[in-house]
Design a protein around this nucleic acid. Sequence first.
DNA 1: ACTGTGACTCTAA
DNA 2: TTTAGAGCCACAG
Length: 110
Amino acid sequence: MLKMGEKMKNRDLYQAVYRVVASIPSGRVASYGQVAVLAGWPGRARAVGAAMRMTVVEQRLPCHRVVYSSGALAPGDAFGGPGRQRRLLEQEGVAFLKNGYVDMKHSIWR
DNA sequence: ACTGTGACTCTAA
DNA sequence: TTTAGAGCCACAG
């Protein structure tokens, strides 16, 4: 495996993030920070967001299941259209509150 | 190397 | 309950 010092940096982080996101079950959501922790990189919530953005091409990932810790959804134009993320989540049975946020109390993963 | 930006989160007001 | 501010860190120019 070569030397592999601290040269590995973010590639491992991204790979771990993708693996975690891919394992979020339908009907459930996880926050960026939560994904970071589960991926083994606590404190890298923003990196998770960046990873999602760079992964737009990788539609295999259920990136619509990743939301803010508050339950808010990603900014409007993400996913190629406003309301898209909400529609996808509702199809999976995710509950929403009156304010438009995800009901984390019932839909948070684990 | 330095700076600006943001699909983040917490705390305090 | 809602807003602001600050800390955070990877990325692009």
